[in-house]
């Protein structure tokens, strides 16, 4: 039962492919695998932190001002991540650029605060946050792998080559917005195809 709260975010209710929330950073930052990993880690920290804090204070937050309260908590976490990254991972901080502060308006975080953390116990909210962020990370890294491989012809994470160059004429388009839409669309189509086949059986 408890494990279910963790795994639902990864598979059944994957934030990217099922809930389709938080797509803006997914489309924008998935140009490189290391950027995607960095974004995934930031979202992990912010989502788990805000889920836990909001769950702790859920009975003290009046429902009329719950959204401002959630946003203040989320924005604080994001600013803390921003400051820490600027100091300790300046290169990644620079590459994520504007998308780092924009985590505040990532709907998956506010969505989980509103739909889950403000109703459920602290421990369940923690599990939900961890599961959702892992699901988010899998999604964004998966898309980034496709895009980086096709746009640069190799995959390198923090200057360490994982997949050596396999083509000399990579497609620049994959690094641009159309590449993001194409990749996410094709992956979603495959997932839906699989689900429809499963239902039909």
């Amino acid at each position: 039962m408890k494990l279910d709260e963790l795994t639902k975010g990864v598979f059944k209710q994957n934030p990217i492919f099922y809930l389709m929330l938080g797509l803006c950073p997914v489309l924008a930052v998935s140009t490189r695998v290391d950027n995607a990993l960095g974004m995934g880690l930031c979202v992990f920290f912010v989502l788990v932190g805000s889920n836990v804090i909001i769950s702790i204070f859920k009975h003290r937050i009046p429902s009329q001002v719950r959204i401002p309260c959630f946003i203040v908590v989320i924005a604080s976490f994001v600013t803390i991540v921003d400051l820490l990254m600027h100091g300790y991972a300046p290169e990644l901080h620079e590459r994520l650029g504007i998308y780092l502060p924009l985590i505040v308006v990532n709907c998956i975080i506010l969505g989980r605060a509103e739909a889950f953390a403000s109703r459920k116990s602290v421990f369940h909210s923690f599990l939900d946050g961890v599961g959702m962020s892992i699901g988010f990370m899998l999604g964004i890294v998966g898309i980034a792998i496709c895009r980086e491989a096709l746009s640069t012809g190799k995959i390198a994470i923090f200057d360490c080559t994982i997949v050596p160059t396999f083509t000399q004429s990579p497609s620049v388009m994959m690094t641009l917005p159309p590449g993001a839409f194409l990749t996410i669309g094709i992956i979603m189509a495959l997932i839906n195809y699989k689900n429809i086949r499963k239902e039909g059986r």
Binding site: F57, R60, I61, P62, Q64, V65, P68, C69, V72, V73
Partner: peptide
Amino acid sequence: GIAIPLIIIC
């Protein structure tokens, strides 16, 4: 009653 919790959180 509504304002105080928001102020405290801020």
